[in-house]
Each structure stands twice: as C-alpha cells, then as structure tokens.
Amino acid sequence: MNKEEYLSIVKKYTPKENKIKNYFYAFLVGGLIGFSGELIKKIIICLFNISAKDASSWTSLLVILITCICTGLGFFDNLVSKYKSGLFIPTTGFAHSIMSSSLDYKKDGLITGLGSNIFKLAGSVILYGLISAFIMGIIKVIINV
C-alpha cells in the first residue's frame, strides 16, 4: 500500500474533533477567567486604595496562587480536560505547567528532578517570550530614534 492511499484511509476513518464546541468552550472559559481577573483588580483597587498598575501585579500573583493550589490539590487537570484550552490563557496556563512539572519530578531529587524539569513545558514560553520582547524592544528603539 502506498503512502497517499494509506493516509487517505486514515483520514477517512479518524474521528473529527468538534472544533466549534471546543472554540466556544475556550472562548467562554478563557473570557470568564479574564473577566474574574478584571473583577479582582477592581476589588483590590477599591479595598486597598492602590494604583491600577500595582493592582494588576497583585491580581496576577493572586491568579497564579489560586492556579497553583488547584493544580496541587489535583483538580486543575480535570478542569482542563473538561474545558479544554480556555484554561491555558497565559497566567493560569503558565503557572499550571510549572506546577505540574514540579509535582511530577519532585521525587526524582531537588536538582536532578525538580530543578532540571520545572521549566519542561514553560521553558519554551520563557525563551521565545524573551526573544520576542528583545526584538520588540529593538523595534521600539528604532522607531523612537
């Protein structure tokens, strides 16, 4: 059997994902998290009387804390399988990826396990985040000159 023929059979019988449903869930859940982040920010501003910039940082920290606790208690992964990638919007997803890797490898030793594997998934986000920040920074400097 040649390659094209086999690939067409595989394509024919492989079940298709319900993409519209997944998009909808991701949009709804992602939006809901963004919305609650904004809500937390507003509450912090009202309660502690601090600037919007400081309140944003506190909100991020709070979201990270909540995500890490959920991952640690072991139900964030169930939520992810249910609500798909909507939960992976940057702050929650990033915290969850670091937390899940560290949970997996903590028993392999602090250096050889946790230390070398904690950024297993988040490493690429950090690397390419830094590179794009660097490039954007250079572009900004050029524009300003």
Partner: peptide, 17 residues
C-alpha cells in the same frame, strides 16, 4: 503519560482519536 507525553497533573486536552 509522564514518559511519552506531558506531566501527569498537566492534564493536556486529548483528542477523541
């Protein structure tokens, strides 16, 4: 899962196939 795919607690969404 840990060896072939993602960390256990990550719970990466899986396609139906």
């Amino acid at each position: 899962e840990k060896q072939y795919r993602f960390p256990v607690e990550y719970g990466s969404p899986k396609p139906i196939r």
